[in-house]
Design a binder for these strands. Structure first.
Length: 103
DNA sequence: AGGGTGACCCGCT
DNA sequence: CAGCGGGCCACCC
């Protein structure tokens, strides 16, 4: 049985290049609808480049935090083609229903 | 073992 | 439309 943070990382790995998902969406995807905050906590612990933590942003479109600095997060997103307007990620880039990890 | 903390969210002013 | 406040959850002292 995978731990909570492992599930979070797995879910994050499912987010394709050039798209993003909110912390809340990831929380829903792993069956913890109210665990958005915990999701951020878990991502913060991760330090593996295999996990695209930068693709997980806040529900309001703001970048949110990043272990290597929010500006770096935004820069990476931009490199992937994710356009931000007024400091917020366009709604059209969001994966509202992130792919579930298992099965 | 328990409380504090943080990469959040949403409803209400 | 922006700001605030209370709620929620796993993790680490």
């Amino acid at each position: 049985m995978a731990t909570f943070k492992e599930k979070v990382w797995s879910a994050a790995r499912c987010i394709p290049r050039g798209r993003v998902a909110s912390y809340a969406a990831v929380a829903r995807a792993i069956g913890k609808p109210c665990g958005a905050r915990a999701v951020g906590n878990a991502l913060n612990k991760n330090r593996s480049p295999k996990v695209p933590c930068h693709r997980v942003v806040r529900a309001d479109g703001m970048a949110g935090g990043y272990a290597w600095g929010t500006p770096a997060k935004i820069a990476r997103l931009r490199k992937e083609g994710v356009v931000t307007r007024k400091g917020r990620v366009d709604n059209s880039y969001f994966l509202h229903h992130p792919p579930l990890v298992h099965r």
